[in-house]
């Protein structure tokens, strides 16, 4: 039992220190901005808004299946937290580069048409 508790604590510690470290990591990862307190705090706010709203949005799956929701929320939460500084990646992916824009546009078009064409006919 005791060893179980320890391992849980370890996991908790690891996760906690991972989150804290990733906050520190954000500061280094914002390459182009002159790193002021303001830009770090806004990156943190963006990070937290992003993660919490994605997780809350995932809860809406409960209208389909509750067990699925639990699995998805836990998995998504773990995935988001372990990949913590998400904002620098997100910002890079949403840059003004034409290739990236067109890539996401074509991706969306493909998914949209596939889902609508096959998804709707087989419901």
């Amino acid at each position: 039992m005791a060893s179980d508790d320890n391992s849980n604590n370890d996991l908790g510690d690891n996760l906690y220190s991972k989150i804290v470290n990733s906050f520190k990591g954000i500061k280094e990862k914002i390459a182009n901005d002159s790193t002021t307190n303001e830009s770090v705090s806004s990156a943190l706010a963006a990070e937290l808004t992003l993660i919490s709203s994605i997780l809350i949005a995932a809860i809406m799956l409960r209208h389909i299946n509750i067990i699925l929701t639990v699995i998805v929320v836990l998995g998504l939460g773990l995935f988001l937290i372990t990949n913590m500084p998400l904002i620098p990646t997100l910002k890079r992916e949403q840059s003004d580069s034409l290739e990236k824009m067109i890539f996401y546009i074509i991706l969306t078009l493909g998914i949209l048409i596939t889902v609508i064409y096959w998804g709707f006919t087989h419901v």
Binding site: D33, S39, S42, A43, A45, A46, T49, L50, S53, I54, A57, I87, L90, K91, Q94
Partner: peptide
């Protein structure tokens, strides 16, 4: 809509 809200606001916070 949710994507627009989340991506819009997170990008807006980061702008200088």
């Amino acid at each position: 809509s949710l994507l627009a809200m989340i991506l819009g606001i997170t990008m807006a916070i980061m702008q200088t």
